[in-house]
């Protein structure tokens, strides 16, 4: 049965309203300051490190993002922690707050479909994250220019821009997850706690568990172990399991994009390395090819999480 009219009637109105809510909210201001301060700290560490080591790196500018100096982690690792927090902060009360304010039935009594409300909220959240990340990206490039004093090449700009796009997709995964829980739980606090719990599990616990689970699925071969080598089957299983986590996917894509010498994201055999000039950088197109499967997986998880939330929301009763 065909529904009457467009599912996207009112989408623009909802998106603009939610966007202006986000941009003027206190929550957003706190998150922005957190991001800026963290970026400054990480950059400071990276620049100190770059100044100490002699600069013979052809991709010095990319090092700004990846180099760390104890005790601070690198800019990229900061981002991979903070972006989920920002996305969860924006999404955890997207739908349940409409229930709790009792605005949902009034808004849905206007000539729009639920699709427009949910999609509008997602787009507004994503746009907010994109704006903050774009500002952060410009900030880092500007500070890098000022403090390091070497202008970045076109390829370096291209690679960091890809990094920006991928970070936005990564943010989308967490935003979709947070919105899913905002649909499932009527209490915003419960939704926030559950989403944060899942974030902690995926980011800190899952990598450890993946290793243990891989050894159960594919026991370590003592012949490899006696040589001090990892068992190929075990390593492969561990990779597959670890890649269920979007954090792992993001980390792998970032390595491939920001480190041009990356040739593979999985285990590599010596036979495959024959004829390769070790440490030689790959062109940007080849790096994208390496990162492509992980990128697609992240986009797919955004869509999957959103669709699950969408289906649940469509079936939910509007009465509070």
């Amino acid at each position: 049965m065909q529904r009457e009219g467009s599912a996207f009637a009112g989408l623009g109105v909802v998106t603009l309203k939610e966007l202006s809510d986000h941009l003027t909210s206190v929550r957003m201001r706190v998150l922005e300051w957190l991001v800026v301060l963290v970026a400054l700290a990480a950059l400071y560490g990276a620049i100190q490190q770059i100044k100490d080591t002699t600069a013979e790196d052809p991709f010095l500018f990319l090092r700004l993002f990846t180099i760390s100096r104890d005790p601070l982690p690198s800019f990229v690792s900061f981002i991979s922690f903070l972006v989920p927090l920002m996305a969860i902060g924006l999404g955890f009360d997207a739908v349940n707050s409409e229930y709790n304010r009792r605005t949902l039935s009034r808004i849905l009594a206007q000539p729009i479909y639920r699709d427009a409300l949910l999609f509008g909220k997602f787009l507004a959240g994503l746009a907010t994250l994109a704006i903050s990340l774009l500002a952060l990206w410009l900030l880092v490039i500007g500070l890098g220019l000022l403090l390091v004093g070497i202008p970045p090449g076109a390829e370096e700009i291209g690679r960091t821009f890809l990094f920006l796009l991928i970070t936005i997709i990564y943010a989308g995964v967490w935003l979709a997850l947070a919105m899913l829980f905002s649909i499932l739980f009527r209490s915003a606090a419960t939704a926030a706690l559950v989403t944060l719990g899942i974030w902690l599990f995926i980011t800190f616990i899952w990598p450890v568990l993946a290793g243990a689970a891989a050894q159960i699925i594919m026991p370590i071969d003592p012949r490899y172990a006696s040589l001090g080598l990892p068992t190929p089957g075990t390593a492969e299983a561990e990779h597959i399991l670890a890649r269920l986590s979007p954090t792992t996917l993001f980390a792998e894509v970032v390595v491939a994009i920001l480190d041009p010498t990356t040739r593979s994201l999985g285990p590599i055999y010596l036979s495959q390395m024959q004829g390769a000039v070790l440490g030689a950088p790959l062109p940007i197109g080849e790096s994208i090819l390496i990162a492509w499967p992980q990128t697609v997986a992240m986009i797919a998880s955004v869509i999957l999480l959103f669709v699950v939330g969408y289906v649940i929301f469509q079936r939910q009763e509007v009465r509070a």
Partner: peptide, 14 residues
């Protein structure tokens, strides 16, 4: 089947 036409003409106070 035609929720938009209905909701355009009906006001609702929950």
């Amino acid at each position: 089947r035609e929720p938009l036409s209905v909701k355009r003409r009906v006001g609702y106070l929950p």
